[in-house]
Design a binder for these strands. Structure first.
Lengths: 110, 110
DNA sequence: TCACATACCTAATTCTGTTATGTATATTTG
DNA sequence: CAAATATACATAACAGAATTAGGTATGTGA
């Protein structure tokens, strides 16, 4: 129920990049919600983690943001910079490989 | 080559527990070597990470250690405490599930 | 009106891995 | 044989990232 927590460390960056690659355009709050839904609340992204991460990635030049008013509230949408697609892909591959190794180490019987 | 690094964070505890569950009895240096071999150097456990982790897990009561002299050098072997098997299993399951979710998030196409 | 959902943000703290050392013995190699 | 390398333990300073806990503001439903 309270689930992973500590596991998230280090992987959050790449999770965010992967989601944006896949969905084109998302805002912070949405990323938290979608991730919870997609993982049955087992990966519980918190806002305290997501916003600093988005800011960091934007600062690093991997993302750009645009503000938009929707239903009276401001949303800040993030997208991948075209120029960083290959960088993003390699990060995703790296983490995917890591996840594979993890599985091997945890369940060597499989 | 230099690989993951940051990904390791948070997962090291559980990796160690899983290896010990599987191999019964290992010493720190061995855990580093075996993990590198098993993952083609892609998960590069360092001694600066492994020893504090082993000490921590022993302190928490999940492990116990015995020293043994082999070929003139002292080795410190670690094993799981019987009493903590169920705890260890649930941690491993949790991380395995996390790895699964990670895969889903990263490669939604699969 | 009050609670809750939406939507953003940041600061203090904690945790844990990296990097860099240090000690010591055994083995390999030039 | 001396020097380098591998084995095997350990700790300390530092850095980075998530947790926890707070804050602001608007819209909606009871």
């Amino acid at each position: 129920m309270d689930s992973n927590k500590k596991f998230l460390n280090g992987t959050l960056n790449t999770i965010v990049l992967a989601l944006l690659k896949d969905n084109g355009r998302m805002y912070g709050y949405e990323i938290c919600q979608k991730t919870r839904e997609a993982t049955n609340n087992q990966i519980n992204l918190t806002e305290g983690a997501i916003y600093p991460t988005l800011h960091r990635l934007e600062k690093e030049g991997l993302l750009f943001s645009t503000k938009e008013k929707v239903n009276g509230r401001v949303r800040k949408y993030y997208s991948l910079n075209q120029s960083s697609i290959s960088e993003v892909n390699s990060q995703i591959d790296l983490l995917a490989k890591f996840a594979g190794h993890l599985r091997t180490l945890l369940k060597p019987s499989l």
